[in-house]
């Protein structure tokens, strides 16, 4: 139980970090796209190394995550399609190719759609990492700690750049900041986080943890740093309460954590829309903006 909750906490913290940037940049659906599109990358890594080794899978998934971002950008730039259409085309096609590859090499690839969609966090404690004959504890915990560390380092090193990147991309460009590097760096982190997480918790939980806690935080604060800290807080809280909900109603842990993120959002939403008087003025402003054609 300790290991399961720890895994869930690690996943939710990593996801909340990258997610808060995506939500601010209005690119939340990229996490959905990436979490589906990495499937062929995982299968190919699986076939090449003939093992369920995590690092080749991380690399394969990372490559396909970046490919999704790149292809979406490319199609949007080269055609007259809207970004959401091109994203939809890219990730569903890559996912379809992934499913076909899984079926094609079914006897060699020990993967099924269900494990990718749900993940099975309950098996985490039995997936041990044996290092030089020593039992080091559950393997996913190590991998997720590594990814979380990587995320924290990325955020500390590029904090200022990320802030400008989230709020004013054009300004960042004119300041000569390396935005392409930040963009693809962040997308790389999203891909890593997604794949490392969904091995244990499944694709949909990853999407929920990337989008919902940051969106909840976004409702409650206007400050960049506060938002990041609040998202991590909501993520961790959902992980812990989700576990106990799952035990209580006897269901999958991943799904229960998602439901908890939804409940916290609902609470924030009700507070914001019905009790926060300060927002009343803002509301009418927003309606004016919403009516102006883009």
């Amino acid at each position: 139980m300790f290991w399961i909750i720890l895994t869930a906490i690690l996943v939710s913290a990593s996801c909340a970090l990258v997610g808060s940037i995506l939500v601010m940049r209005k690119q939340a659906m990229l996490s959905d796209a990436i979490s589906h599109a990495v499937l062929p990358g995982i299968v190919i890594a699986f076939l090449l190394t003939a093992s369920r080794n995590t690092f080749p899978m991380l690399i394969g998934a990372g490559a396909f995550g970046l490919l999704t971002v790149y292809l979406t950008d490319l199609i949007t730039r080269k055609t007259k399609l809207f970004e959401d259409s091109s994203m939809g085309i890219v990730f569903t096609t890559l996912f379809a190719i992934g499913v076909i590859l899984v079926t094609l090499f079914a006897d060699m690839v020990d993967l099924d759609q269900e494990c990718i969609l749900y993940g099975e966090i309950a098996y985490v404690p039995w997936d041990r990492w044996l290092f030089m004959g020593m039992d080091m504890g559950p393997r996913p915990v190590w991998i997720l700690s590594f990814v979380l560390l990587l995320n924290i380092i990325f955020f500390l090193v590029t904090f200022k750049e990320l802030k400008i990147y989230s709020f004013d991309y054009q300004l960042a460009l004119t300041m000569g900041l390396p935005m392409a590097g930040i963009h693809y760096g962040l997308m790389g982190m999203v891909s890593f986080t997604t794949i490392a997480s969904f091995e244990s918790v499944g694709a949909i939980l990853v999407v929920a943890l990337i989008i919902v806690p940051p969106a909840t935080a976004y409702l409650l604060t206007d400050k960049f740093l506060n938002m990041i800290l609040l998202s991590v807080g909501f993520g961790v809280l959902s992980a812990i309460t989700g576990y106990f909900l799952a035990v209580w109603i006897d269901s999958t842990i991943a799904g229960a954590i998602v439901v908890m993120t939804g409940i916290y959002f609902l609470m924030a939403y009700i507070y914001k829309v019905y009790f926060d008087e300060k927002r009343q003025g803002l509301d009418s402003q927003k309606n004016i903006v919403a009516l102006t054609p883009k």
């Binding site: 939340a28 659906m29 939980l205 919902v212 969106a215 229960a256 998602v258 439901v259």
Partner: peptide, 26 residues
């Protein structure tokens, strides 16, 4: 969500997608 809060369309799409689906899985 998009009408009543400052949350953007794609975020609300992603939230509904994942939370409803999570509920379904549960």
């Amino acid at each position: 969500i998009t009408l009543k809060t400052k949350i953007s369309t794609d975020t609300s799409i992603g939230m509904v997608l994942s939370v409803f689906f999570g509920l379904g899985v549960v």
